[in-house]
Design a protein around this nucleic acid. Structure first.
Lengths: 302, 302
DNA sequence: TTTAAAATTGTCATATAGTGGAATATTGAT
DNA sequence: ATCAATATTCCACTATATGACAATTTTAAA
């Protein structure tokens, strides 16, 4: 379906005539032609038209695609859904699609996409096939991330998906890079949320798996660094969820360095707030995580 | 500055060649021409190019405009800022800009914008000038809102800005309309947030000004209705801020219908959660609102 | 229903988006 | 520095986006 047809729908809704909308931008006859689907339109003109309608491009495209999210969002969402539901078959399918595009066009973007899926697949199943993707995958991918000068939503989502498979030192460097190189997007909600997610994941990763909580802890300084990044970022008072998570992480951090009582108090505080707000699932997840930590700390031999 | 130049920057960053990016979409030579700013590009081609780069239109434009939000966002933001800081001079200026565009193009959109600013200005200062805007402003504006079949971000923001000046019955009908007619945007964060804001404002409006809390309360049923909308909407567990606000509003509602103890408990609970999460300003505002209610309930003669 | 004004579409001219391939510039290995 | 390979630009050409204005349809008032 043509963009113009969507535009006409919206224009009619707003009770604006062709003449009024075209005035100062393009000719009436052309706008009519475009709206009937008989012509494409230049990006420059379209920008001015949407501006006049007080409409953002993304909102327009959302309507145009019959109220479906963009392909970009669908991609990350479907990968995430497949991973969360441990559906390796679906992951395989998604991976193959990306590999096909990679081979077809040679664009590395598709390569990274495939790698990300591969990495997720391997977490679920060590047998996850990877004929096309060699050993040095992760290396290539992190090279790319170091190389890019500005991280947008894509780079952050990509990194977030693969972070778990990297060495701690690499994660520390890349997460720093992520924070610095996405700096300019601080006002752009979607990207800001992605940065926040990266920082949270980094901290959880550096705390280590719960069954190693009795081992010596060496990332004290780095965790402090990333927590301070988070505090700067999510500083707006409205981000209550982020604040609850920070409270929890501060607690887990204290548990990790052996400050048991303090740690339990903080984590339970976070859990209680969630419960009070009826966010039961989140509360239960947090509760379970705490229980695991306590269990392993009492049975360090496991 | 040209769109193409921005595109080239991004492409280079990602280490993709002209050939790779153009392949399957357009010719290499044309892409080169576009990237040098020697040609505009068709919307259809641009869509496919951005898709290949895993980039949304809005993110691309955000980068293109040197990491500034779109004009649409700037408009609502600057109006809101001027209103919040009670800067009637700035409001006047913004209004005149919109009126100028309205007269220039005849597009009603600019008319509604001007009306919205007029309404806000009148709240701050009853002398706020309005040569151009007649008495029946509000009537025209609400006619428009009733007429439009699908409410997007623009309609919601517009309504939110003017709701306070409408009659209660009108607000009830329009807020219902808003909720129903923006239904299809439920997955689109920005619009969803706007719907949420409308519902909250509606409830607060229907509760009435605090110095009338002793009068008979007649919107019991409607408030219940809007709260249930909110609960359906913000049902995702992550929306902690919305959940805190709901808790507060439930409390205020009970205060309003005379259930004093219950009401105070709930509102204070909401306040406490905010305090525990260091959202001091939000907590203080809520506290102040509660104190006002209690004050007027004890001195109904004022 | 008639009629005049307003809104939209059709026709044709032209500017410019977009192509293919040759010419040039860049890159990277020896 | 030289050379081959690759990436980009230039140029002549074609397709199509866009404009001017006439023809038609729609709207709304009498």
């Amino acid at each position: 379906m043509e963009y113009g047809v969507t535009l006409r729908k919206i224009r009619k809704q707003k009770g604006i005539t062709l003449k009024e909308l075209a005035d100062g931008i393009c000719s009436i006859s052309f706008l009519s032609k475009f709206e009937r689907g008989d012509s494409d339109i230049t990006l420059g003109l379209m920008t001015r038209i949407l501006e006049k309608l007080m409409l953002s491009f993304d909102e327009f495209l959302y309507v145009h695609h019959d109220y479906q999210p963009s392909k970009l969002e669908i991609f990350f969402k479907s990968v995430n859904t497949a991973y969360m539901s441990r559906d390796t078959v679906q992951l395989e399918k998604l991976k193959n699609e990306e590999i096909k595009k990679w081979k077809r066009f040679g664009v590395e973007t598709y390569h990274w996409n495939a790698m990300m899926i591969q990495v997720l697949g391997q977490i679920l199943d060590t047998q996850f096939t990877h004929e096309e993707l060699k050993e040095n995958n992760i290396r290539l991918l992190s090279d790319y991330l170091f190389r890019v000068e500005v991280w947008g939503y894509y780079e952050l989502a990509l990194y977030n998906g693969t972070l778990l498979l990297l060495e701690p030192d690499m994660v520390i460097m890349l997460s720093r890079t992520a924070f610095q190189k996405s700096d300019r997007f601080k006002e752009y909600t979607k990207v800001k949320d992605a940065i926040t997610a990266v920082l949270f994941n980094t901290i959880i990763y550096l705390l280590g798996p719960v069954n190693r909580f009795h081992e010596k802890f060496i990332y004290q300084k780095e965790i402090g660094e990333f927590i301070s990044y988070l505090e700067n970022l999510a500083l707006s008072e409205d981000n209550l969820l982020e604040r609850v998570h920070l409270l929890q992480l501060n607690g887990v951090y204290e548990l990790r360095i052996g400050d048991k009582e303090e740690g339990i108090v903080k984590v339970e505080h976070a859990i209680n707030i969630l419960k009070e707000l009826n966010s039961t699932k989140l509360a239960n997840n947090m509760e379970q995580y705490l229980q695991q930590i306590l269990y392993y700390q009492e049975n360090p031999q496991l």
